[in-house]
Computed example of a mutant assay.
Amino acid sequence: MIMNQKPRAVHFGAGNIGRGFIGALLAESGYHVVFSDVNNKVVDELNKRDTYEVRILEADEGSEEITDFSAVDSHNVIAELADPNVRIVTTAVGPPILEKLAPTLAKGLQARRSAGGGPLNVIACENMVNQTQTLAKHVHTHLSPADIEWLNQHIGFANCSVDRIVPSVQLDDENPLDVGVEEFSEWAVDQTALKSEIHPPVNGMKLTDNLDGYIERKLFTLNCGHAISAYLGYVRQHHTIDEAMSDPEISRVVRGALHEGGVALVRKHKFEEQDHAAYIERILLRFANPKLKDDVKRVARQPLRKLGREDRLLGPAYLAQGYGMPIDNLAHGIAAVFLFDMPDDEEAVQLQEKVKTHGIDKTVTEHTGFEEGGDEHRKVVDAYHGLKGK
């Protein structure tokens, strides 16, 4: 076991988001960050180098140098999790990987219990609702009743809301670990679920006892607009999000969709109207940033997950519907999902097969819950045929 007195953080996922957002904030806050990844090439690169650069992709381009990190594979991370100096565990692996990660995390927490490692907080930084509680449920399936009792007393599983665009851009650098990010970032964590104080505090992490508002604001605004611009961008043969947002038709629909969902968000969470309007405008500016070169196909991947009842597209649509608000632009964006035809995306292939086999009317009903013949269903289907015709 490693016995370094400096506080340590274990972060699962050493991709661009891990290195450019969560891992970077932890390192800047005084933690030694231990990255864990299944990609041995990335693990070796992290152990070979002493530093990497996080480059801010804005008009006034700046950079941050990240130091004090190491990396391990999934086998050696168990010993790291047992280290009493580890104070926080985070993830940025993608929602579908949480279940696959659970057995390793469970073994690490069992090792921590045996070693008397003390309390620890786990925060899954994924773009989904209740991501950390979902991870906790998967972990529980690999533990004994005694382990679970110990876990409930010592390990905090805190949901969060994360917001930073980290595109898959290739920087013209010698260091393959360097990553480009937008300047804006937000990381809100449910402080009521923590089992111990996060010390030292993490720069950029906001502890809150009202996480639901942060989650829905971000998911139904940033993620909603991001997805709609990607699906419409794909239909209209644009390659990047900024290119799509330069298309007046797409820009109009995205702005309209965010305002439709925004009216409902303001009512539900008692946001100030002017503040939320400013939040929408800031997001639209972020989408238009040409330096991000955010790939349309990357943002649009996994369409079935993005059509979840409480996710970024149907979530704001149902919320607006509940307040008697129109959803014309949201319906237009939802329709574009059914035209995302990418052979290398398993979910896109499944969705297209359903459209071919059952027709668009029944497929829309199945994946949106909108009753066939109803007003919302008609808007989605009409928009689908209009987009397909173009």
Rank of each mutant, 00 (worst) to 15 (best):
A317T: 12
I280C: 00
A244H: 12
G322P: 11
G315L: 05
L307P: 09
A257I: 14
L304V: 10
Q274V: 08
G315S: 07
V254L: 12
R301G: 01
S246C: 12
T192L: 11
G315I: 07
L219E: 02
F287K: 02
A230L: 13
I228A: 04
G213C: 12
L258T: 12
R252I: 10
K293H: 00
L314D: 04
R286E: 02
Y214N: 12
F287Y: 07
P290V: 05
A230W: 02
D247N: 15
S251F: 08
A288V: 06
L285A: 08
L292T: 03
L194R: 07
K293A: 03
M245N: 06
A288G: 01
P200C: 03
G213A: 15
A300N: 03
R298D: 00
A277S: 01
Y231M: 14
I280Y: 00
D209W: 08
D212A: 14
K306R: 05
Y323T: 03
I283C: 00
K218F: 04
K218D: 08
V254Y: 09
V263I: 12
N289L: 05
E281S: 03
A288M: 02
G261A: 12
Q302H: 11
P303Q: 06
Y231Q: 15
L219Q: 05
L284T: 03
A193Q: 06
Q237A: 13
L232M: 15
A317D: 09
F287G: 02
P248R: 02
L307S: 04
G308C: 06
A277N: 01
D242N: 15
Q274Y: 00
A244L: 15
T221N: 13
G324L: 10
E249P: 06
G225A: 08
V253R: 09
D275E: 03
K195S: 05
G225V: 11
E249K: 14
H259P: 12
